[in-house]
Amino acid sequence: MALNVENIKMIRDVFPEVRTLYVESFKDEGVTFPHSFLERFPMLKKLYVENSSFEKVFSPQDEIIDFMGKIPPFEKLHIAYLDQLKSIWKDDSQLPPIHQNLIKRLEVESCHSLVMLAPSFASFQNMQKLFISGCHQLVYLVTSSTTKSLVSLKWLGINDCKKMEEIVLHENNEGVEGGITLNQLQRIELTDMPSLKMFSSQSLTFEFPELEVIEITGCHEMKMFCPGALETPELSRVKIEEHEMKWKDKKDLNKTVEMLCSAKV
């Protein structure tokens, strides 16, 4: 089902069979996301929010307290062409885990004003696929504490984010002192990010026990993966621009990135 600002006002019934909902074309200045209508779709699995003027999607708890237990536990969130969007989850929002922990797939496309993907306390324990593209105000993707929660992530893809300098920003947090392990991550794709320098600029230890493929294209400032220790026992393919290296044995990822980056000059 697709709802815009005109027909959403006519919705009165409950739609228990709707699994995919598009919320689109809310163009009025200062318009807010219509949380109250989501309770009419109790079996919702996929939520698409597109072509609207929302500055945020999920408001702070005190603004939507009446709907906290009624918003369905959707598994996929797709956000696209929200030119005014500053944040998806507000810094002071304490949404119940159902809206972060149960999301399996998050896609954010062409949100040119987005300055923060998620607050530092965000937890995405069931996230399997994360794709971001065309978000030119993002300087980093997620904090180290949020990254530590991505225990189910299998595929990370980031494309055309002009200002992004690193993927993981390390904040002073005792919970990540022992390093970050992403047990399920199999594939990393980083494309067309002219400001990207490293995956993380701090000396964090990253363990990727299932990582098989890394592809980096159009990230000309990137000279190494990260300064910290890396564990990538299953990594078999690294591709930077048209240069590719396939491994049969465990190799040094940082040295490989440095070598392939030198080869592309």
Rank of each mutant, 00 (worst) to 15 (best):
G157I: 08
I188G: 05
K163M: 08
E171W: 00
N172T: 14
L182F: 14
V176Q: 01
N172M: 08
G157S: 14
N173D: 15
N183V: 15
K163P: 01
M164W: 03
K148D: 03
V168N: 00
G157R: 11
L150W: 09
L153R: 02
L150I: 08
V176C: 12
T147W: 04
E171P: 01
L156R: 07
K162Y: 00
T181N: 07
I158P: 06
W155P: 00
E171G: 13
K154G: 12
N159C: 14
L153A: 07
K148Y: 05
I188N: 02
E174D: 10
K163F: 02
I180M: 01
I188W: 05
I188M: 08
K154E: 15
N173G: 05
T147D: 01
G179C: 00
E165Q: 12
V151A: 02
Q186F: 04
K154R: 13
K148L: 08
Q184N: 13
L182Q: 12
N173K: 10
E177S: 11
N159T: 11
G179F: 00
E171Y: 13
N173V: 10
H170N: 11
Q186V: 03
L182A: 10
E171N: 12
S152F: 00
N183M: 11
K154D: 08
G175T: 13
E165H: 06
M164Q: 03
G175R: 09
L156D: 07
T181A: 10
S149Y: 00
T146Q: 05
G178E: 04
R187N: 13
N159F: 13
N172I: 14
N173H: 11
M164Y: 02
K154C: 12
Q186E: 06
M164E: 02
L150S: 05
L153M: 11
S149H: 01
S152M: 09
G175I: 03
G175A: 09
I188E: 04
H170F: 12
Q186K: 10
E177A: 08
L169C: 14
V176D: 09
S152V: 03
S152W: 01
E166I: 03
L185K: 04
W155K: 12
Q186S: 08
K154N: 11
N159I: 11
E174M: 04
L156N: 14
S152T: 03
E177I: 06
N159W: 11
G179E: 00
R187M: 15
I158G: 03
W155F: 11
I158A: 09
G175K: 10
K148F: 06
V168L: 08
E174L: 08
I188L: 07
L156E: 03
K163N: 11
S152I: 04
E171I: 15
N183R: 15
E165G: 06
